[in-house]
């Protein structure tokens, strides 16, 4: 799993007593964090890709630390594009993925954030994963 995601989770989300305190803008913050993390990871991946092709290899060794933390099989850029495709079809399900994967929220936290039941989030999550997997594995899809 992504260390960076864990990082956001660890470093920032726990500033809030998650089970009890609610404050205005919390949804907004988590949302922003998810988007930010997604952007960071994608940029990171793009840059690494460029470096591999020969340009600007200056930062490479430091990025290795991150590479280790990435799921080896998963191409972040492809995932990003796949999530974008999903968002075109179904923005709500894409949002669940963003919150779960990029902000590292649990099912319960995501549910609380979106104001739906945990079982609904679980259902959406299972579905979105299957859809994304199929898209990334390259067999079919709409």
């Amino acid at each position: 799993m992504l260390q960076t995601t864990a990082l956001v989770h660890e470093a920032y989300l726990r500033l809030v007593d998650q089970s009890r305190v609610k404050w205005e803008g919390r949804t907004h913050f988590f949302g922003a964090a998810a988007v930010t993390m997604r952007r960071i990871l994608v940029e990171q991946a793009r840059r690494r890709l460029r470096a591999k092709r020969g340009g600007g290899a200056e930062h490479d060794s430091l990025d290795d630390a991150l590479t280790i933390a990435l799921e080896p099989d998963l191409d972040v850029i492809a995932l990003d594009l796949a999530i974008e495709d999903l968002a075109k079809l179904d923005a709500d399900r894409a949002r669940v993925v963003e919150l779960r994967y990029f902000a590292g929220l649990s099912i319960d936290e995501t549910a609380e954030l979106l104001g739906v039941s945990p079982s609904a989030v679980n259902r959406d999550w299972t579905f979105a994963k299957a859809w994304l997997y199929r898209r990334l594995a390259g067999n079919g899809g709409n």
Binding site: L2, Q3, T4, A6, L7, V8, E10, A11, I40, L41, E43, Q44, L62, D63, A65, L66, I68, A69
Partner: peptide, 11 residues
């Protein structure tokens, strides 16, 4: 503080 997290470079 972040330095001690592996993979925190991007952040």
């Amino acid at each position: 503080g972040l330095q001690r997290f592996a993979g925190s470079t991007a952040l």
